[in-house]
Write a protein that binds this DNA or RNA. Sequence first.
DNA 1: CACGCTCTGCCTGCG
DNA 2: GCAGAGCGTG
Length: 803
Amino acid sequence: MQQTLPQRYLAAKAALFERAFSSLNPRQQEAVFHVNGPLLVLAGAGSGKTTVLVRRIAFLIRYGNAYHSERLPEPLTEAAVSRLEQAASLSPGELLPLLDEFADDPCPPWRVLAITFTNKAANEIKTRLAGMFPEQPGYADEIWTGTFHSVCVRILRRHGEACGYRPGFSIYDADDSKKAFSEAMKRAGVDEKVLPLKTVANAVSRAKDRLLTPEEYEAEAGRDYRLGQIARVYTAYQQLLRESNALDFDDLIMQTVLLLQREPSVAEEYQRRFRYVCVDEYQDTNPAQFALTRLLSGGSRNLMVVGDDDQSIYRFRGATIENILSFDKAYPGATVVRLEQNYRSTQNILDAANAVIRQNAGRMGKTLWTAAGAGAPIHLISCADQNDEGRRIVDVIQRKVARGEARYRDFAVLYRVNAQSQSLEQAFARAAVPYRMLGGLRFNDRKEIRDAAAYLQLIANHDDNLRLLRVINEPRRKIGPRTLEAVAQIAQEQDCSMFGVIERAADFVALRNARPMLEDFAALIHTLTEDLGRLPLDVFFDAVLDRSGYRRMLTEAGESEAERLDNLEEFKSQIIDYMKHAEQPTLAGFLEETALVAEVDRYDEDADAVVMMTMHAAKGLEFPAVFLPGMEDGLFPGMQTIDAGQAEMEEERRLCYVALTRAKRELYILHTAQRLLYGRTGYNPLSRFVSEIPDALLEQSRPRSGGSAGRGLYGSRGAAPAPEQPRVYFSEHGAPSAEKPAAKRPAAPREQFEPGDRVRHPVFGEGEVLSVRRMGSDTLYEVMFDTAGTKKLMASYARLRRA
DNA sequence: CACGCTCTGCCTGCG
DNA sequence: GCAGAGCGTG
């Protein structure tokens, strides 16, 4: 069949792109080359999702619609076409310079918006995008990359007045928000003992996720007394925040959406600007974020979302997995690309993860696979109690490090609840194994840091009543609660901020006793506000500490407060750091940055230490070896999950899937016969999730003799179906192991197979050998299974038998 | 107003 | 088991 010249040209052009991007697999290429219309990339764990996101953005900017374009050069000559056809033999690197000529309507970088959930992800994308344009330093900076919250803050700083927020508004974090709720409940006359603050705060946060205003919430509450109470607190809380010219984290999103909905001209401005909108971790979005992305991408409908429904683990904080499950309904005609090839883990780990997640009903359906081989079996370690558990983890790590097989930083310990970290920390400290913990008390949550920040925030926003109350008597200024109550009352009546009243203390009879103290305080804030205008930020910070008397208070307290002084110095170095990297350092800019920074962002990947964190915090990270302590029914899944519905259990199972897929090479699952947690001893059976993992993937090791391991521990495995047939044991990399149980299966003489042989695999079933390749002392078989597809398997791990 | 005592409640948590 | 809140007393 004779191809026409245009056909040959287009085919050759496509082939060149495919070859130039041959480091990507075909599915990844499909996503990267996609240009127009909505696109959903279902990216399994470790499938190169960030790579696809970054490469696609770079592609749009460099080549535009080059791949799909049917545009032809004028004139189209035989010579030009055959030149292209011959170029196909060039290496991908040599090809790249040739591709520029195909660029078709490339997109300027400032017309691309990429939204992530964490600063860490945003920074990674920024860094990698910069690497895509090495010849144009700074070019990638024009791409608008940020978290949902930072994008919203940026919009609100520009257009916030359209929805009633004055410039310099404060951002309240969870802690500030709790305080504001406490006050709001008092105002609304709702007793914290009747309706816990936590419950109300949570309900309001969920309401904002769903874009419900206080009025709408009240309407929805109807005659429900409890909901009615919550609605009243919500109303009071919003009022309070307005008075303080402040927004909480949920407001940042919700108010931006309301702004864009109510002010079409503002929405259009952004819609015109953004030709391409990309959203990472789409499975974690809530309805408000859905609305936001829809509004921002409304101009072009060029919305790309990347996510994994199987890794949706934030339902409890308002994420709706439906956003990703019904993306193609919200965006008819959307292209869906599945990334199922995993570049992170061994097949054994993936098989375990696949087996667990398969138990869930509501999913798009994906099966991860790898070309990397089966790898080591998954270690299942039974322990006496949580202390034994810690020691066992430490033992494995010390053994591997001593042998030079690994470094401390290769190991991660991931647990379900932060409370588990305590016994683990003890074990690590006792053995002098270096570790780092994420979570717990954040640096910026320390009292002295919050106090210092509150001074700064009050100076930036005099209306911020919450911060005023925090610092007005820190150090002591003899301004008592009665005075402050009076000030608050007058502020209400006068419809102004508390600071506004304090400034004019002389005008109010009720304040005559406290007048000198109040005037001193007002003068302090005024002086510092002037200082702000004429001093560099770090010097200004010192002025705040000195003029306020805060530093003197700590110095006079002596040795006991020395650490707090150190922490304030550390905070100052954050300011200096900010001054160095900010284009135009301002107090508001610094406060914004610290308000929007989270703990994970401080995770230092370079330190050689074992890392400990919750499974939630580990999402998106990977480690050569992962320990999962506490794999017990009652802890994981937790008691409240077991008592709740199927949706909760499925979320918990997704969390298990996330945890399992963090491991690259080695996975250790631990459980205890008894566990002391929250001051109570519990006896938990093995996690149901572990029993969902095929026995053949697991290697079980028993408690070491001589340890504190008691007798009859296995009686506790109760609810989990005890393996009927003995679990199969395998040698771990052929290395001698003291922990191998005596009942280890004798290593059967390994059979050799040839292409065409029928074989049986314990997990994949029967199949036909396609190819055989010797690799060192091992053999790599490629087997086409009747039901499980084609897999590459290493003979030493695959346990293949003749069928 | 500062202190020490008792009582309670406790997943997970981006920004 | 422990932190944080609430309460009573010097």
